[in-house]
């Protein structure tokens, strides 16, 4: 069944898009990530213009993260005060990111920056996650206790001043690294057009020692607010949000996210991290191949906007 998209200006198969929403929603519910780094390339592959894809995916992520936030909220598996503090840093980071985005576009180096940051970020973060989780699984197999995972363990980060108590996470840590992490996520998100959940989750686990059970819900709150803001900003400035496409993606996404969240709760945490790590590395390698392999078509055409 084909339906014509009013903003993207092309017909798509409803069931194909619904299926894409379901799949990405499942992944996002399972790992507590937005899934933007998967959905945007998929939409571009179907023929949606990259600018429309980025803008529309933001609203899809808002929907699936809201449904996720609600179910984690009921299980009391999210830390609101931690999320609010992360958001404060995130807003500042987004501002800085948008500024750099404009500068890079002016000097014509935006595309390559986005491509390279995808490759570097995804392969390094994914690689680290795979390495760490394989280690944890092996340790568990050999019967040793995973000492690194104890919530009480302190690093230099826990020695910083301006401490604050986060009850749900059972943490007493400085606000500086929390704001800093929010800032980095906001900055990267604005440049790469992603929610940044796949970066935030490992940062919260490894740097702040936030318990895994709280991490996903908390990360989803941040994703929800940034993506809702991004949708409104994209709609108000570029008029590129396709509500019809967004609705189909949302419906698939929220259903997928529910099943994903349940699958995620059943799976052991280290196995979950390994899976996410493999997924992230795979997407990173895919982007790397695009940059390294000779393209079948060296030319590309794009309508110029705002010309005369």
């Amino acid at each position: 069944m084909e339906i014509y998209l009013p903003i993207a200006d092309l017909p798509v198969n409803v069931f194909l898009v619904l299926g894409m929403g379901l799949t990405v929603g499942f992944v996002s519910g399972m790992f507590g990530i937005g899934g933007g780094f998967l959905m945007t390339p998929l939409l571009i592959f179907v023929g949606v213009a990259p600018a429309v894809a980025v803008a529309t995916v933001a609203s899809h992520i808002a929907a699936s993260s809201f449904s996720g936030v609600l179910s984690y909220w009921r299980r009391k598996a999210l830390d609101i005060s931690l999320a609010m503090l992360l958001l404060t840093g995130g807003v500042i980071g987004t501002g800085l990111g948008v500024w750099l985005f404009t500068v890079l576009r002016r000097i014509g180096q935006l595309d390559i920056t986005i491509g390279l940051s995808y490759v570097i970020l995804l392969t390094s973060v994914g690689g680290l996650m795979v390495y760490e989780s394989v280690g944890a699984i092996l340790r568990a197999r050999s019967g040793k206790r995973a000492e690194l995972r104890r919530p009480g363990t302190h690093t230099w980060i826990h020695g910083l001043p301006f401490k604050m108590r986060f009850k749900t996470s059972r943490l007493y840590i400085s606000v500086i690294p929390v704001l800093g992490i929010g800032l980095i996520i906001g900055f990267i998100g604005a440049i790469m057009g992603i929610g940044g959940g796949f970066l935030l989750v490992p940062m919260l686990i490894y740097l702040l020692r936030v318990p895994t059970s709280v991490v996903i819900g908390t990360s989803m709150v941040l994703t929800l607010v940034t993506m809702a803001m991004a949708t409104i900003m994209h709609a108000a400035t570029n008029h590129l949000v396709d509500a019809v496409l967004a609705l189909i993606l949302m419906v698939g996404g929220v259903i997928g996210a529910q099943f994903g969240a349940r699958a995620g709760q059943k799976m052991p945490a280290d196995r979950l991290r390994l899976l996410l790590g493999v997924l992230v590395v795979a997407v990173g390698v895919r982007f790397a191949l695009d940059l390294v392999l000779p393209p079948t078509e060296a030319f590309s055409i794009r309508a110029m906007e705002n010309t005369r």
Binding site: A62, L70, T231, I232, A235, A243, I255, Q258
Partner: peptide, 19 residues
């Protein structure tokens, strides 16, 4: 702006409905 706001409301509604 309102179009964007409406899309976000739609997103929240869809998310809430599913949950």
């Amino acid at each position: 702006f309102f179009y964007g706001l409406a899309t976000v409301m739609l997103a929240l509604l869809t998310g809430w409905f599913a949950s």
